[in-house]
Amino acid sequence: MDQLTQHSLWKTNIRHKNWMVWGSCFVLALLTAYCWTIMTEETIWEFVYDAPVQGADLINRMFPPDWLYINKLYKALWDTINIATLGTLLGLIIALPVAFLAARNTTPSVLFVRPIALFVIAASRSINSLIWALLLVMILGPGILAGVLAIGLRSVGFIAKLFYESIEEINTTSVEAIESTGASHFQVINYAIIPQVLPAFLGVIIFRWDINIRESTILGLVGAGGIGLFLSSSLNVLAWPQVTLIIVVILATVIISEFISAKVRSLLIG
């Protein structure tokens, strides 16, 4: 092939690529515009235009925060932390076997068990913890228990997915070596697999705990305990100064938990 044809080939290639990019941008723009018209069909634009006035009014009513209200929040805050922590533990306990059943190199059957484990993971992951809480409150009644279970059930998929991915990435010759000593299946897991994946596992657990603290702050909105209960009741009576304080407390909790998880992570994993 001489240089000229090569050059023109390169050029058409670029042009082809450009067409693809502009084409997909155009389609995306059309799609967005279409979605926009459907979405805003029922929007009442007077409310939207009115928003700045409403916003100024809201801020007026929100400040100053009702600082004394904090005395009622301590118990709720403690509940929130419990929901997140116990929920993470529950998720971990369920996720461990699921992860080993889902990982290609540890599952007893790629054809039957693995797809089931993967479906459990997908179902748990696609349903938000607030929806889990909604269902559990309906079944178990309002309270912390529903919150713990909601956080736990949502965490299963997240933890198991990251766990099984790290199990699939392990060094297989160490596994072979332990197998060749005559070790049983569980001994192989204990000696060859767990030590290799432990740092990744710890990281995932801490990461999920941090997320769970965030999520458990709002579970009270559907009655599943914690500080969200107070947020919901203050909103219902339009006690905006209390709402401000609760938001401040939630933000502080989230920031502190982020700080703690970063510290623990660097201590454990280094």
């Binding site: 160490s174 070596a177 000593t181 005559g182 000696y191 290799q196």
Partner: peptide, 15 residues
């Protein structure tokens, strides 16, 4: 397998 020892190329220790 208990009676057959094996030594590997990449040592295959659990690090």
């Amino acid at each position: 397998r208990r009676y057959i020892g094996m030594i590997f190329q990449e040592y295959a220790l659990v690090e």
